[in-house]
Design a binder for these strands. Structure first.
Length: 210
DNA sequence: TCATTAACACGGG
DNA sequence: CCCGTGTTAATGA
């Protein structure tokens, strides 16, 4: 775990702190597709992603989802910071996009280090800022783009976080993430395929160019 | 006009 | 067979 920590956070956090994290944090493993956190779950600490990618979703009363953003290795989840201001329940759902590994740092440690370590403070604030930007991006696409554009943005984002142009996914999953119906997703994907942007297979999409 | 819902056929694993 | 996929028809915003 020490190596994974160094790999993911070595450039921004000093060695002593990395050791402390390894000591007091709990290791957590998540298989692709596994739900890491759901709405209403108690937040035990600040998750720091070591490997893989996690998608963060909002869920409405009917259980319908909407993708907010992706977390990659070196990212931490901004929403958990809400627990400093009272609420200890999660307001989002997090699902592993790939097989992922992470460390959960207990909240009292986070509190402690926020005061003591400038590098840690910077990491948390930067992560918060990045998440906020991504959130604004998804709001923009929701408000200003048609579904065709949203699907295109969604695919490019997923290609980016997976580091691969091969996406193991289904039309239904895309529809759920974008909070729309599968029919439209199928139609739009078919159209993109005809334009030569991608190739469609069962449970798989090959992205050619965007 | 464009999205949604329901319904159906096809076919691959 | 089950499920993902591709399409159509009807309806709605």
């Amino acid at each position: 775990m020490q190596e994974l920590l160094t790999e993911a956070y070595g450039p921004v956090l000093n060695g002593n702190l990395l050791e402390e994290i390894a000591e007091s944090g709990h290791f957590r493993d998540a298989e692709k597709g596994e739900m890491v956190m759901d709405i209403g779950d108690t937040i035990q600490g600040l998750p720091m992603l070591l490997q893989g990618a996690v998608k963060v979703l909002r869920v409405d009363d009917n259980g319908e989802e909407l993708l907010l953003y992706f977390l990659e290795s070196g990212d931490s989840c901004a929403m958990t910071l809400g627990s400093f201001f009272g609420s200890s329940k999660s307001s989002i759902r997090a699902v592993a996009e790939q097989d992922s590994k992470m460390v959960i740092v207990p909240l009292d440690k986070v509190h402690d280090w926020m005061g003591k370590h400038a590098d840690f403070r910077q990491l948390v604030f930067e992560s918060f800022n990045t998440r906020l930007k991504e959130l604004i991006e998804s709001m923009d696409s929701l408000a200003f783009m048609d579904l065709h554009g949203r699907v295109a943005k969604y695919l490019t984002d997923r290609v980016k976080v997976n580091g691969s142009t091969t996406l193991d996914t289904t039309h239904a999953e895309i529809a759920a993430d974008l909070h729309t119906s599968r029919v439209v997703v199928s139609r739009i994907l078919k159209q993109l395929e005809r334009e030569g942007m991608l190739e469609l297979h069962r449970n798989r999409i090959e992205v050619i160019a965007f």
